[in-house]
Design a protein around this nucleic acid. Sequence first.
DNA 1: CTCTTTTATCGTACGCGTATAAAATAATCC
DNA 2: GGATTATTTTATACGCGTACGATAAAAGAG
Lengths: 214, 214
Amino acid sequence: MRQRLQTKKPSMPRVGRPPRSAQQSAEVRARVIEVARALFATEGFEAVSMRRIAADAGCAPMTLYGYFHSKNEILRYIWEGFFAELFARVAAAAAKGTAAERLRRACNAYLEYWLEFPDRYRMVYLNQDEAADGEHYFAEESQVAEGYGRIRALIEAAQTEGTAWPGDAQLMGETLICGLQGIAHSLITIPEYPWMAAERLLVQMLGVVLKPKM
Amino acid sequence: MRQRLQTKKPSMPRVGRPPRSAQQSAEVRARVIEVARALFATEGFEAVSMRRIAADAGCAPMTLYGYFHSKNEILRYIWEGFFAELFARVAAAAAKGTAAERLRRACNAYLEYWLEFPDRYRMVYLNQDEAADGEHYFAEESQVAEGYGRIRALIEAAQTEGTAWPGDAQLMGETLICGLQGIAHSLITIPEYPWMAAERLLVQMLGVVLKPKM
DNA sequence: CTCTTTTATCGTACGCGTATAAAATAATCC
DNA sequence: GGATTATTTTATACGCGTACGATAAAAGAG
């Protein structure tokens, strides 16, 4: 009943078909992700089936499950592209100027990105499923936590500039992020309500951090 | 090929099985909604199938579609109960005190409701489908628009009190609502991030409207 | 080569939401 | 009483995500 003892690492079988190399896996995954990205972009996430992705990728539907846990995990890989573009825009917007101006423009770029691509917003933020154990999550590590940190740094710089209110920069940053998120969410998911213009809401929201302009 | 001319109102057939009375429709709908509400509350929206609702309601699955356009429309009827409880709590919280205190407590009650029932939040705000023509939407009419109006009135009262910043009360109200929504959304959908306490985020967010306390 | 073992791929099947069309029902007309 | 007709109810079927088990493939062992 006991597993056969191995001479090398624990559970390294010496016989049998070898598992895919990391490179093979990465290649297949990359092809599937690219196929899925193109389909989702033109037809939308819900409208594209795993059968369709498999057909375009040249394999059987269930083969995809050897590389991804679920359709949603494929989507989560595609988020990376969204966030990369988003953060590139935000970084470009916040490249120069006073700390207050950089913060203002960064927030504006953030908001404009989601309002320009509401379908992407829905794919990311109206996603019901939460990642199961071992799924690719694309959580705080990498870009997102880094972006949050930059917000806080900008707030601290604005505070030393005298253009931001004094107070806990972390708290102010999280509040601002929630506020931006709420503006995007409300305008995108309740479009039938006659919201004020996003720029005006943003200016008002920035009041949690920045003192009013002269 | 032409329809037969009718003597009474246009398209009032005089023969054939008569349509359900409004009361019959209402009774069946109410029973289905109650059955669905109970099931959704214990098992969650996704986990409950139309077949299951139909079995509990004592009809064939497709019969439900004579009374509702979709599973999501059933859910939208159930929202009404959520919002009724929410607004009752908000109204109770805002019953007495200065305008600033009432606003603060109303916002706190709003936020606490969703944080206490995150599943309800997800059912309402992570809902992908938008209502098709003719579906029961539960949109601004009734309670929600009324709630928004009350927020604005409280802000105006706080302005005359001198406890709120001057400015466009409508703009400030929408910004505050977006901010509350964003706090709820972020804390509920990204629970793995170490957010600051909701009360602190709320106090900070109220800064878009209220002057700091002494 | 064949046998064994491990992994990769895929065919089949389940329950889902719901479109469609057949069946049942309830009324009037003759 | 049929026969007709408008409406309600339901049986069937489709494509979906994916669990499960069968099959194919790739390696060492003999």
